[in-house]
Design a protein around this nucleic acid. Sequence first.
DNA 1: TCGTATATGTAACGTTATAACATTTTGAAC
DNA 2: GTTCAAAATGTTATAACGTTACATATACGA
Lengths: 159, 159
Amino acid sequence: MVSRAFPTPGHDHGACAAQALAAAEKLCQARGARLTAVRRKVLSLVWQSHAPVGAYDLLARLNKGGGKIAPIAVYRALDFLMAQGLVHRLASINAYMGCAHIGHDHAAQFLICKDCGCAAELESPALRKALVKAVAGRGFTIDREIVEISGLCPHCKAS
Amino acid sequence: MVSRAFPTPGHDHGACAAQALAAAEKLCQARGARLTAVRRKVLSLVWQSHAPVGAYDLLARLNKGGGKIAPIAVYRALDFLMAQGLVHRLASINAYMGCAHIGHDHAAQFLICKDCGCAAELESPALRKALVKAVAGRGFTIDREIVEISGLCPHCKAS
DNA sequence: TCGTATATGTAACGTTATAACATTTTGAAC
DNA sequence: GTTCAAAATGTTATAACGTTACATATACGA
Ligand SMILES: [Zn+2]
Ligand SMILES: [Zn+2]
Ligand SMILES: [Zn+2]
Ligand SMILES: [Zn+2]
């Protein structure tokens, strides 16, 4: 499920994953984009938790059980998924996470917990606005924005 | 010099570098931090331009002329320089740039031009404030913030 | 079914960063 | 000045992340 709160340790994550996969399926169908077996598998692996996962971790999970998929296959799948807005890349930790706001076409901001490894999208219009405004005076034309905030999530802070 | 505008192609960059190196020297002295030969050299290489530079680029420049310095030496120097706030790392491009606001102890934001490769620090209190505010409601404790905006600088836009 | 565009397979390679351990340098205490 | 420990550097190898190049297979409309 798309939750506005930071992912709770005990939540029904099966629902998150199922919802995300279903939405992806639907979106790709609508666009005529081909969500192939490999891509679908990678997407489901990305959604195994709310902790962003590295490409080689995904690769290992894919190959668990004797597969021989090469790194490039994972990167190609991730490229497709990112192009469709189904997955985000977190530059600060070289990892990938499922998008919780499929279809919104957003420039997202991320919260990353250093303790549990989970991440969440902030998607704050106010922050985005402040950013655009801050840049405006400098004569700079924005193409891409990366906002990644690391720290302690509420659940880890409590424990 | 510390310029508030995006670095101009024709500016007196020798002055930028000289000022930055002098400030670094002074700061380290005051702190009792050891700005050794390697570290000073790396810092000066970082300041060769306003375009963030990769660690292996720095390594190549260091070894130009037959040196045999290993990668780890560059990373150690960069670690020191970052710890002292003299250099920033840009996660989105795996590159390093000199800090233009030595001593301010700031959480900086960066503008990166895709065309000329130059970068500048934004250091907008308003943006920082908006970010903190946006996160506030989520119960998240901020440790580190990464804001990297890529696009076209005013000079490249003009040409 | 033909032909082309898209997707995947295969192998090698490039780039970025760190681990582990030996040696040297530094600066202060004696 | 000698001694000693901390800090810095040297050395070697390896981990982690990502891409190039080219061959093959699959999908899908004409
Ligand atoms: Zn969940
Ligand atoms: Zn946490
Ligand atoms: Zn300059
Ligand atoms: Zn430019």
